[in-house]
Amino acid sequence: MKSSYNCPSNRKRVIDLYFLEHRAKLLDIASFLDRIQRADPLEEKEDNFRLKALKNALHLLIDDEPNKTKRILESLSDQDSEVPQSALGTKGAMGAPKEIKK
């Protein structure tokens, strides 16, 4: 990786350019979590695995370490080394692994 200062814009300009857009995205996440709380859980007694993964990733968002995007993507990745013979008709992905391996 190059120098840690490899963005051609300075820090103030980056904040000026992107702050409002990301303030809105933060509120989108908050309202999404509120919406889940307002929804009938039906038979789901515990947090859904995708919601758990999202909440786990939120911890990475506020720590002081670099490379947050990479670390969040890794936390949302399947870490299982098993390779099944077939997906048995499954085509899509869910966005988070069924079991979070830490």
């Binding site: 993507l73 890794e74 399947d78 869910m94």
Partner: peptide, 12 residues
């Protein structure tokens, strides 16, 4: 692959 399958799939 997509989403949670990408890292493992890329390495495979």
């Amino acid at each position: 692959p997509h989403l949670e399958d990408k890292l493992k799939g890329t390495l495979l």
